[in-house]
Computed example of a mutant assay.
Amino acid sequence: MIDWLLDPAHWSGPDGIPTLVYQHLLYTFMALLVAAALAVPLGLYIGHTRRGAVVIAGLANSLRALPTIGLLILLVLVIAPSFTTKLAYLVPSLIVLILLAIPPILTNTYAGVTTVDAAAVDAARGMGFRSLRILFEVEIPCAMPLILSGIRSAVLQLISTATVAAYISLGGLGRLLIDGKAQSNYAMMAAGAVLVSLLALVFDLGIGFGATRLVSPGLTRRNSKARRNPALPPRPATA
């Protein structure tokens, strides 16, 4: 596997590793953008209004139970005759990936809003905040850790599952798995598995680091007062 990865021939051309990584990330983030555009507003609405909570559980569980490969083949059979270009395979792949990414984003967004401290919401309402202002200035900032956690989970699932695009003749790192199996080239298959794992690990660490920068320090206790040396005596109380 290491010899295969170190071969310069595998790092250039239309079937080279950089091209496959680009295609893999393209499928991943196209699906992520659409899933987030659908799931985040819906999760915010249900969490803020407390209406349709049953929809969250039912929709999330049903989408998680869908068989990925079976649904992909079904969508290709239904959608492919309507296109004469590569969209015949790209659209079904994106639909499957979008359906996979919606549940973690939707459930975490809803859970993040519903777990906001009721005292903070009541204080904002007492100060004259209207409903939308409470949502955008109180609930969303407080729910941001869980929302980002849902996006992080969705990215990991998409990176690991985007390999199915190669099953219907598209690109991505799944090509190394599919072509390696067809050629009985186990070094290629192992290299593809390692590259997918490394890609998922890099984005997991990157999103985790970015989340610490985006979330308010008051929610993560990332301020100097919270990290005060316990050996120092407490400050005297003041009126």
Rank of each mutant, 00 (worst) to 15 (best):
A124F: 01
V164F: 04
S82N: 14
G172H: 02
G52A: 13
A143M: 12
T161P: 05
L90C: 12
V164H: 04
I178F: 15
I147W: 13
G126K: 06
G171R: 04
F136Q: 06
L132C: 07
L72E: 09
F83R: 05
L38R: 09
L132I: 11
A65S: 13
G112F: 12
L146G: 04
A39C: 07
P92F: 09
A119Q: 01
L158D: 05
G47E: 07
V78G: 11
I151R: 00
L77M: 10
L158C: 11
N61S: 15
T163Y: 03
P92K: 06
D117M: 01
F129Q: 10
L135P: 04
G58C: 14
S62K: 09
G128W: 11
F136N: 00
H48M: 07
V40H: 06
L176M: 05
G171E: 14
L38D: 08
L173V: 07
L66R: 00
S160Q: 09
A143P: 13
Q157H: 11
T49Y: 06
A165M: 03
T68V: 12
I102Q: 00
V155S: 01
T107K: 05
N108P: 07
R50K: 13
T84Y: 07
G171N: 14
L132Y: 11
A57S: 14
V121A: 02
P67R: 12
I134S: 04
G47Q: 06
N61A: 15
V54I: 08
P103R: 10
A162I: 01
V96F: 14
N108Q: 08
A118W: 01
I105W: 00
D117N: 08
L75N: 13
P104R: 00
S62I: 14
S93I: 03
P92I: 02
V116S: 00
G171P: 15
T49M: 00
L63K: 06
H48K: 02
V78W: 15
I98V: 14
L156A: 14
M144D: 08
R125C: 02
L38H: 11
D179Y: 03
R64Y: 15
A53I: 05
V116C: 03
I102M: 10
A118T: 00
A88D: 13
T161C: 10
R133V: 07
T49H: 05
L170D: 01
R125F: 08
Y89V: 08
A111Q: 15
A80C: 09
L42F: 03
I79T: 02
A57C: 02
L158E: 05
V155I: 08
L75R: 14
I102D: 05
S160I: 09
V55N: 09
G47K: 04
I46T: 12
V55D: 09
G174K: 10
S149G: 10
T109K: 06
V54L: 13
L100C: 11
A118D: 06
H48W: 00
V76P: 08
E139I: 02
T85W: 15
P141H: 03
